[in-house]
Amino acid sequence: MRLPETSAVLELRHAVRGWLVRHDLGSAVAVALSGGADSLALTAAAVAEAGSVDALIVDHQLQPGSAAVAATAAATALKLGCRSAHVLPVEVGREGGMEAAARKARYAALDGAREGLPVLLGHTLDDQAETVLLGLARGSGPRSIQGMAAYSPPWGRPLLGVRRTVTRQFCADLGLIPHEDPHNDSPEFTRVRLRAEVVPLLEDVLGGGVAEALGRTAEQLREDNTVLDELAHDLLRVASHGPGHTGDTHAHDVTLSCETLATAPTALRRRAIRAWLLDGGAKALTGKHLQAVDQLVTAWRGQGGVAVGGGEPGTRLVAGREHGRLTLAHTDRVRPGERE
């Protein structure tokens, strides 16, 4: 399909072409296609710029007629010139709420069907701005407001510098009719209210350019975080010792020297602790978890361990301090003095 040379079409093609050149992952890609304007525009631009494109359409089966929507998206993908189009029905669970459960099911389906290809996602600058605001509200540090990465293997996001209005204009220029997901207008979802109420208000009060400013902030923080993570990795290597010294067969093999950690700047120390906890099996770490474990290093008064998410059935994963070292082990129960 030959694309018209409108400003919207050229902007998207330039964004996709730049992403492909920067990451040099070969001539074939997969695209996650929902049928909405963002993913439709991305699919068409990818067909024009990549050697071959496979469309992956996830049917969450959450709304009546979802199979028909998915089938229409698949047919459109083939019409646009995709090499293949695959509909992936999924069962969405309930853990963490519908949004989180649907996201988990979607990414699992895409990962299982991509056959080694990078998967392009239609996240735009507007999505990035909303993500930064959500992270800011959580208050869990710079990592939560660095937004989405342009490439976090296998997920690629070529449109993080493109506004949502441009993808809609792109579809209009091609005569494409996007699917309008009713969930995108439902005020019960926080992201929808950000999109419909908060961001427009900020644009009005601050005189415009808010989405772009938030996008730049995310990019700068991501660059800073990359450097800090590298330095924290060096600190973790120096502070580490293995195997564990707890005598517990369920212990994490690596313990950390509290003395070494205590001499490091807070930003590096907490990043090192976070990486160590994640490597030991911790899940859904919060700022509260990190602060409590950090106090085992910097404010040691004989307090008990800190229970962090990630325990196995019937156990808790607990970070503690023994003989001047941080330890991590599964325990059968929360011991007296332990915190969650």
Rank of each mutant, 00 (worst) to 15 (best):
F170K: 00
Q169M: 05
L256H: 07
D248L: 11
V254Y: 06
L228Q: 11
T260Y: 06
A251H: 02
P243G: 09
A232I: 03
V192E: 06
E188Y: 02
I177T: 15
E212R: 11
S240T: 10
T190G: 03
A211I: 03
H183T: 00
L202F: 10
A213N: 12
E188F: 01
T255Q: 08
E230K: 15
L256M: 11
T165R: 14
H179C: 05
T190C: 04
A196S: 09
V192W: 02
E197F: 02
N184R: 11
V238R: 12
L261R: 06
S257H: 11
A232Q: 01
A218P: 00
E259P: 01
R216F: 03
P178L: 03
R237G: 06
L194C: 07
L174D: 09
E230W: 09
L214M: 10
D204G: 13
R216T: 09
L256Y: 01
R191P: 00
G175R: 07
R216H: 12
L231H: 15
Q169P: 00
H252Y: 15
A196K: 15
H183E: 07
G209W: 05
G208E: 11
A213T: 12
V205H: 04
A239N: 06
L235W: 01
G208R: 10
S186C: 13
A262L: 10
P182L: 04
R168S: 05
D224C: 06
T226E: 14
G247E: 05
T190N: 02
H241K: 09
S257G: 14
H233K: 13
F189P: 00
Q169H: 07
E180L: 08
D229N: 13
D248R: 13
L201E: 13
E203K: 08
A213D: 08
V227P: 02
G207W: 09
E212F: 07
D229K: 08
L236N: 02
E259T: 12
T255W: 09
G209C: 12
L261I: 13
D181P: 06
D204H: 15
T167Q: 06
H233S: 14
G242C: 09
V227R: 14
H241G: 14
A196T: 13
T190H: 14
H241F: 08
E203I: 03
H233P: 05
A213Y: 04
D253H: 10
G207C: 14
D253K: 07
T190V: 13
D234Y: 01
E223S: 14
L174N: 04
V166R: 00
R237M: 11
H241C: 12
E203G: 05
S257Q: 12
E212K: 14
L221V: 07
D234V: 13
S257D: 14
N225W: 04
F189E: 00
C258L: 03
D229E: 13
V166H: 04
H250E: 11
L228Y: 02
D253G: 11
H183R: 04
A262Y: 05
D181R: 14
R216I: 06
L256C: 07
